[in-house]
């Protein structure tokens, strides 16, 4: 397809190609063949060369493949790309990071991609807590033991929102209404995704119940809520702020209030012990040597402290922070334990 990205590369059209071949033949059959074979050899040789360097132990010896289990353009993808570029620009690692999108199968596709690569630090995954949900729901044949945690590079928390013309102005109004009339309101969620789990954790904590309507993406949730087909839904804080009008946030799931939304209380302020922070989590295969992980972590830690990156995070209502691999894994295990009962309840 995209041979056309660069106009100098005419490789694709059969017509153009045979034309090119004919021209080449006219010039010199032999030279052309030699050139082509030479180019081929050079490519495979350089591949071998980088491989042999890897044996010498200078990490990284070839581009690092970062697998993102989503389609391009989402937050996880964007953050991976931004950090990768920053690291390359500043030369914190001697080789570039190459982002690979492997969407689908609740992450199983990405894990399979990871298993195809070597556990030598040249294969990494950039994910978030959807990983924990996949594990809690037992989708795919992977557990946390398949991974070694490199660390969190920041993250963000969502809000629970209703339509602007909704009669409920606080979370308490909403809970009271739902307690008076159980299942009277519709919540737009993707069953078995983060909005569903966060909503269910809140519902369990506060003791209410909603009806659901399936919405497979943030856009779907927005569409259903604005159109009056749902009453409540979860949004990333940046999605909520970008929408500007039409929505009203009742509660923020972060541990502290978000500076951009000073009037939206956190759940813990309201006496409900529910919080959800979705980190940008860097992982490598479990067998990756520790010294290599440390080098990767060091580069990421520098990148997340870079002013430009911090600015991007702030603009998108994300928090830029660094949490090292072990603490991140401990945090994830705690979250996973909290998710398990919810997962069991919807089995």
């Amino acid at each position: 397809m995209n041979r056309y990205t660069h106009t100098t590369d005419p490789a694709g059209r059969p017509g153009a190609l045979s034309q090119a071949c004919r021209t080449v033949r006219r010039v010199s059959r032999r030279t052309a063949c030699k050139l082509a074979v030479g180019a081929l050899l050079a490519t495979s040789l350089s591949g071998n060369a980088t491989l042999s360097l890897a044996d010498e132990g200078s990490y990284p010896s070839k581009p690092i493949r970062v697998i993102v289990p989503f389609k391009p353009g989402g937050r996880t993808d964007t953050v991976a790309r931004l950090l990768g570029e920053k690291i390359q620009e500043k030369g914190w690692l001697s080789q570039p990071m190459v982002i690979l999108n492997a969407d689908g199968g609740a992450g199983a596709n990405a894990v399979n991609q990871m298993r195809r690569g070597d556990a030598d630090g040249h294969t990494a995954v950039h994910w978030h807590h959807q990983l924990l949900i996949s594990i809690a729901m037992q989708l795919g044949d992977f557990t946390l033991d398949d991974f070694k945690s490199v660390g969190y590079t920041g993250g963000g928390s969502p809000v629970w929102a209703v339509r602007e013309d909704s009669p409920y102005n606080t979370l308490q109004d909403l809970i009271d209404a739902l307690k008076a009339e159980p299942r009277s309101l519709v919540e737009a969620v993707g069953i078995g995704t983060i909005p569903h789990f966060v909503g269910a954790m809140l519902a369990n904590e506060a003791g209410f119940e909603t009806r659901y309507v399936t919405a497979s993406s943030g856009a779907d949730r927005l569409r259903l809520l604005l159109g009056g087909n749902a009453d409540i839904s979860l949004f990333a804080a940046s999605e909520f702020i970008g929408q500007g009008e039409g929505l009203k946030a009742l509660v923020y799931f972060g541990r502290e209030r978000l500076p951009d939304l000073p009037d939206v209380p956190t759940a813990s302020e309201l006496g409900l012990d529910v919080s959800w922070a979705n980190p940008n989590w860097w992982l490598v295969p479990a067998d990756t040597p520790d010294d290599v992980v440390a080098q990767l972590a060091a580069a990421l830690e520098k990148a997340i402290a870079d002013p430009e990156i911090v600015e991007y995070f702030n603009n998108n209502t994300l928090e830029a922070y660094w949490m090292d691999g072990e603490s991140a894994m401990a945090d994830a295990k705690k979250t996973l334990a909290a998710l398990k009962p919810v997962a069991d309840s919807i089995k």
């Binding site: 041979r3 990205t5 490789a11 190609l17 045979s18 082509a36 074979v37």
Partner: peptide
């Protein structure tokens, strides 16, 4: 053979 080489190399490069 020549065409295949050019096609493959071109695709590889761009991809």
């Amino acid at each position: 053979a020549l065409f295949g080489l050019v096609l493959a190399a071109g695709l590889y490069l761009v991809m």
